[in-house]
Amino acid sequence: MRVPFIKMHGLGNDFVVLDARAETLPPINARVAAALADRREGIGCDQLVLLEPSADADFRMRIFNSDGSEVGACGNAARAVALLHGSAARVETAGGIIAVEPDGGGARVDMGRPRFDWDAIPLAYPMDTLSMPVGWEGMDNPAAVNVGNPHVVCFVEDCDTVPLDELGPEIENDPLFPERINVNCATIESRTRIRLRVWERGAGLTRACGTGACATAVVAMRRGLVENRVTVVLPGGPLTIEWADSNPAAGASIVMTGPATEAFRGSFEWDDYA
């Protein structure tokens, strides 16, 4: 069976998109996803994105990390899918329904409401998620938030000097996080600008992480470090994050705006990866 794919990226965070909305594909499992994501023997990507019909939204988006694990949300993939779809849509994800809309060369995405309760992250035991009494080699006083995916956020003087390639996997797999965690290392540059690096659960260091930018921005807003509209600069480039009310009780959604790009299209033989 010959299967078409679209290779896309958001600020260098790259995806292989399979569109099964009109034509059903064989079931995707962790082994197939990891084989397609392999950069030496597969197509190569940070995440595999599968589009399917949905009974509750315009369509469904499933996201698999490069290790084959399935995750609840991906902000950069949401922008890429918005660009591919070509019009405003409600998209079902494992983390909830989000709203996407093409915007110039990218998209504006309503990422939904952040969740801060310890058991929504989840953590292994109760604690204040805005100021956690834990740390890892200078990554101290972190915060945790679930924005469709679970994130831990640490603010440091210079995020570029932190050995995130070493600390990332240690923190990701810390017993405090029973479902593992995405690790954000951030530096506040001004009231409207944050510099960020992210170790993604199941994918490692990536050039950009949309949910990481959202998580870091809302934590910084809750701590009063930045305004309610902020530019988050990742290695791949900037994203704009807005959160209308930094009071969690207000229930405001996070809005992310940024670019997305289609790189190329191709096809592969399904049996080569099944």
Rank of each mutant, 00 (worst) to 15 (best):
G236E: 11
V232Y: 06
F155V: 06
F264L: 14
N141G: 03
A57D: 07
P126Y: 11
G44Q: 12
R108I: 10
W118N: 05
L196G: 10
N182D: 14
A22G: 14
I63V: 15
L176Q: 13
C209N: 07
P27N: 05
L83E: 00
P27K: 14
V145F: 05
A88E: 15
L18G: 10
L205F: 09
V183W: 01
F116D: 01
A208M: 11
H9C: 10
V156M: 03
E189M: 10
A124W: 04
F177C: 09
N247A: 14
D117G: 01
W118E: 07
W118F: 11
V100P: 05
D46E: 14
P142I: 12
D14S: 11
N228Q: 15
A274T: 07
A186W: 05
L123M: 10
D46I: 11
F59E: 07
V218E: 05
D38V: 04
E101A: 14
A30V: 03
G96Q: 03
E200Y: 05
P102R: 03
N76M: 06
D110Y: 06
T129W: 04
V145C: 02
V100C: 06
H85V: 11
L83M: 13
A144N: 07
R180K: 13
P122C: 05
E137A: 13
D117R: 10
G68W: 03
N149H: 02
R31F: 06
V156E: 02
T93D: 01
V153I: 14
N13C: 08
